[in-house]
Each structure stands twice: as C-alpha cells, then as structure tokens.
Design a binder for these strands. Structure first.
Length: 561
DNA sequence: GTTCCCCGCGCG
DNA sequence: AAAGCGCGCGGGGAAC
C-alpha cells in the first residue's frame, strides 16, 4: 500500500510504498517526523492493526464517519458530488469478534478488510477526501463543521483504543456479586438456586404450579387468572398491585435479567485476561452518540460496577459531568438565568434556590420534561414554570420541536442534522390536512407529528451533548498520550503494547469517562480530565459563562453510585 | 429450521 | 414510579 503526504491545499508532497507488514513501522516513522493528520477510509479498519503493532497516531480524518455527517448536514449546501458517492454512506459495524475458534474456514475473512466496507484504495480515498474538502470549504460556518469533523474522527481513534486497552475487570468480584444475588453458579442449562426458590414462591402464591415465568404472554394470563389485573407484566405495572405473588415475581425478574444479560455466560464470553473489551460504534446513533455492538457496553448495570477494578499498583479515575444536557442547552441558547442556576453547583439545586420549584426532584423532572417533550403529570406541571424563568432555553427546544412537527430538519451546535423524513410521512401529513380526511387519519398524523417534534426537540440537545463529550475525550486523549511511560515493573500488561505503561482511557458512557492510570499518575490524570472538560466548554461555547462541573473519584475499584 | 418482531429492562 | 428522548440485548413465539 502507498502513503501520500499532502499539503494544506491537497497538493502531493511525497509518497512511500510498503507491504502490509511494513505499514505500522512506516506510519510510526511519519508520525514521529511529521505529526500529520492521517486521512484514511475508516479508523475502525486501520487503527486496530496499528495498535496491535504498538503504533498510535495522534490525529486522523475518518472519511467514512465524516461522509455520513456531511451528506446530511444542513450547513453543507453543495453536496451533490458527496451524495453521489454513496458507497461511503456505510453504517457498517466493526467486524464481529471471532467467537467460534473452530471456524477455520473463515479465518481468512476475519483478518482481511470487511466485506462491504468503504473503499480503501488510494485513488478513491483521495477522491473522497477532495469531495469532502470542497464540501467543507463551501459550507455555511465551516469552522464549526471542522470542529465536528475533528471531534468525530478523534472519536473513531478513541473507540479503537478503548477496545484495544479494555476495561480492567475483576472476574472474582463479578462472580461474587452473581453468587450473592443468584446463588452459586449452576450447571449449564439449569437455573441458579435463588431463582428456583423465588419461582416456587410465585407459583405457590398464584396457586399454579406450572406458570412459565419467562414467557410474558403466558405469565400475563396466569396473573389474570389469579385476579391481578395488569395490562402487561412490566415491573412498574406489577408494583401498582398488592398480591403475595408480586414481591417474589419482581425478585425473580431482577435475577433473571442479571443472569441473562450479565451472568456467567457473559463473563466467559466477554472477559479475558482481566479485560472486558467492548465494541464501540462511533456515530452509531442518529444524534451522534456512540452505540455499542456486542457485550452491551453501554448497559453495564450499576450493580456490577464494583467488578471494574484497577490492576495492582494502578487506579481508576472515574468522572461524570453533572447535568450535561441541560448545561449544553443553557449554553446553546445563551440563557443567562439557566447558566446562572448551574454555575459552580448542581443545576437542579440551583433551580430550587432560584425559587422556581420546591424540590430538587421537581426541578429534575421539569428539566427532563423540557428536553424530552413531556406534557403530562408532574413534568407537564413544572415545564410552564421553566418556560417563564428560562425563556431562551425553552424557546430553543420548543423551536426545534415545532420544526420537527412541520417535517423540517434540525441541526446540532456543530452541524449534525437530523435525518430526512420518508416521503410517505409528508404525504400522510398532507393527506390528513385535506378537508375530506377521516378523523382517525387526522389523529394519526397529529400523533406522528408530535412524535417527530419530540425527537427533533431532543436531537439538538442530545446531539450537541455528544459533541461536547467527544471534544472532552479528544482533549483528554491527547493529554494522556503525553504522560511519561512508567517502568516495565509496574506495567499493566493486559492493556496491550500502547497502553500498558501509561494512563489511558478505559471506559466511556455518554457523559462519563474512566481512566486507568498508574497510581503515581492518578492525580495528574484527574487534573487532565478536569482541564479537558474546561477546554471542551471553551471550544464549543467560547465566551460563555457556562461551566461543566465533574463528579470525579480516584479509586482502585469503581464505586457503585 | 431460520428469521424477524415484540416485550421487558439495563444504561445515559 | 413513569412520564417525555436515544440506544442494545436475550428470550419467546409468530412468520417464513
């Protein structure tokens, strides 16, 4: 394969050829000599093989991810050429981890580039890069879009690095939690003892020795037969009722969830040599949030947090942002009252102290209602008060909702736009507005419009929060990469060649990061996390008084909240 | 026998 | 307690 060096205007400066085996060494040399921004087809395809060889790059431009932003962004006016190149519009997940070691027939496929992936040959890579450069240079507000492009690309590197380093995971502690909750690990195919016991209690209370507790339709019929009149078997419906079967059933459901989602089978499949290596999917959510694929990385139950444990002589530094989304909304809208309510403290308490609501819980429900479009219950009662006290913030989300109800497109702070609607949606709306439209048709169209409005209302805030989080992690990653290496004697070998001797990101969850660091670097890592949060705030909202306070802890074990 | 959808629930 | 947004996953069971 060939590497080409380009100048700032896209002109060719230099090029070099190498075989696949020589690639990491050549990349390492160019990285050291030029510190370039690597333009490549897809970090998810290139980065893992470099990391495995002990090579890390500082910056990249991920053509696949950037393409998906630019082709939809309302800030890009001249996108015909980009949209025509639709092989680049690929949502492809990273390759499946090889689960079946016996599948030798497919070994070749597992190590070669992914079938159906974006092009990776030099000419098409250069052509797409040129299209993206053109689109960016002609965009409205190119500076913001360039921040987004850089942040999204940094995210692609971080996702690959998080997977390579892994989360230090204490199998013994995980087993202890499972055993305490479920009973000792049972033989394969048999349920654990405490589930068996809870199941027996439910069946006795229902006076029905054969109820299949794992089949919602059958369980629902059995509940009805016992006189428990619930519309579904969900826990919050069950909690409304008094019956001796309810308590053991809820207990059974909790245990069943833990066992099937994160039980011993999960442990065997996903934790190896003390590391859980989740598959992150940057840009996997329409709003720009990350998704995950396999292992449920973004749904690790809080109950299992104690199983995250630093290697000997290392620490975990976990930090989450307090009320990220409302703060992002306050900053975007420049709502001075809302910014002031959160300044240096808990935003919800600030709303109470400003005399807008009585309790922190009310403040939280009201703010979530504002972000999600809640109209009923407590949230519906509090939102109007927020609308009076935070007019700019509420105007921003109300405006986004109104745009969505009309079928319009909304755009995040840095330029990611909501996906286009199906033509059938607009047709249904038009049809419902004809004089002869049936009442049911009109009601369905109104409901669908309101749903779209709630989606676009939330999109601008959730999407901008995702941009803030990417900027935070990108700044943090570069700072951590400058830390000194610690001696081989305290290396965390399981973190792999790039990360075993230096503080590194180990976990990310929307508004939370965990860094795994040698004990002597823990304080410095904590400082870096705080500085990166401040930097992200200034980068996205220069001149704004908004702050992003962190809840940060240094420990050997990740504490349960 | 395989594929797809729904339910329910974990996370933010 | 959920509600109002965004996800992934396992299990059951219908559809193919």
């Amino acid at each position: 394969m060939r590497l080409v060096a380009l100048d700032a205007d896209g002109g060719r400066l230099d090029e070099e050829e190498t075989g696949a085996d020589g690639l990491p060494a050549l990349v390492a040399r160019w990285e050291a000599e030029h510190s370039p921004r690597w333009v490549w087809s897809d970090a998810a395809a290139w980065s893992p093989r470099l990391l495995a060889a002990g090579v890390r790059v500082q910056r990249c431009h991920d053509l696949r991810l950037v393409h998906r932003i630019l082709r939809h962004s309302a800030l890009v006016h001249d996108a015909q050429a980009l949209r025509a190149a639709d092989v680049w519009d690929t949502p492809l997940d990273p390759p499946e981890p090889v689960r079946d070691a016996g599948a030798t027939l497919f070994d070749l496929e597992a190590t070669s580039p992914r079938s159906g992936a974006v092009p990776s040959d030099l000419e098409e890579t250069l052509a797409e890069h040129a299209r993206q450069r053109t689109a960016l240079s002609r965009a409205e507000d190119p500076a913001r879009l360039r921040l987004l492009v850089a942040a999204e690309s940094a995210g692609a590197l971080i996702a690959a690095e998080l997977q390579a380093a892994g989360i230090p995971w204490d199998v013994t502690e995980h087993d202890r939690i499972l055993t305490a909750a479920l009973g000792p690990r049972p033989a394969p195919g048999t349920p654990p003892s405490r589930m068996v016991a809870a199941g027996a209690e439910v069946r006795a209370a229902l006076d029905d020795p054969l109820v299949p507790l794992d089949s919602p339709p059958k369980l629902l019929r059995a509940l009805h037969r016992a006189g428990i009149d619930v519309p579904s078997t969900s826990q919050w419906e069950l909690q409304q009722h008094q019956h001796p079967a309810i308590e053991p059933l809820l207990r059974y459901k909790k245990m069943s969830r833990l066992l099937t989602a994160n039980g011993w089978t999960w442990l065997d499949e996903w934790v190896h040599e003390g590391r859980y290596r989740p598959v992150y999917v940057p840009g996997g959510v329409v709003t720009g949030r990350w998704a995950s694929s396999g292992g449920g990385a973004l749904q690790i139950p809080r109950q299992l947090r104690p199983a995250l444990r630093a290697d000997p002589g290392w620490r975990l530094i976990s930090a989450d942002v307090s009320q990220l989304e409302p703060r992002v909304l306050a900053a975007m809208s420049g709502d001075t009252a809302m910014i002031a309510a959160g300044a240096g403290k808990d935003l919800y308490s600030g709303i109470v102290e400003a005399g807008i609501v009585q309790t922190r819980q009310e403040a939280k429900i009201g703010v979530l209602g504002a972000l999600y479009g809640g109209t009923t219950g407590d949230s519906g009662r509090v939102v109007p008060r927020l609308r009076r006290n935070f007019p700019a913030a509420m105007a921003l989300v109300d405006g986004a909702a109104a745009t969505g109800e009309r079928g319009g497109t909304v755009t995040t702070w840095l330029g990611r736009s909501s996906p286009a609607l199906e033509e059938s949606w607009s047709q249904a709306q038009r049809a419902a507005n004809q004089v002869d439209a049936a009442a049911g048709q009109q009601e369905a169209a109104r409901r669908s419009a309101r749903e779209r409005g709630r989606f676009t209302r939330n999109f601008v805030v959730q999407g901008t929060a995702a941009e803030w989080a990417l900027s935070w992690m990108a700044a943090l990653r570069l700072q951590l990469a400058r830390f000194e290496e610690v001696p081989e004697t305290v290396a965390a070998a399981a973190s792999g060649p790039v990360f075993s001797r230096r503080a590194h990101l180990a976990f990310f969850l929307h508004d939370e990061v965990i860094v795994h660091a040698p004990a002597e670097q823990a304080e410095a890592a904590a400082t870096a996390i705080r500085e990166a949060a401040d930097a992200a705030g200034r980068l996205l909202f220069p001149g704004s008084a908004i702050d992003f306070p962190l809840d940060l802890k240094i420990s050997e074990r990740s504490a349960q909240k």
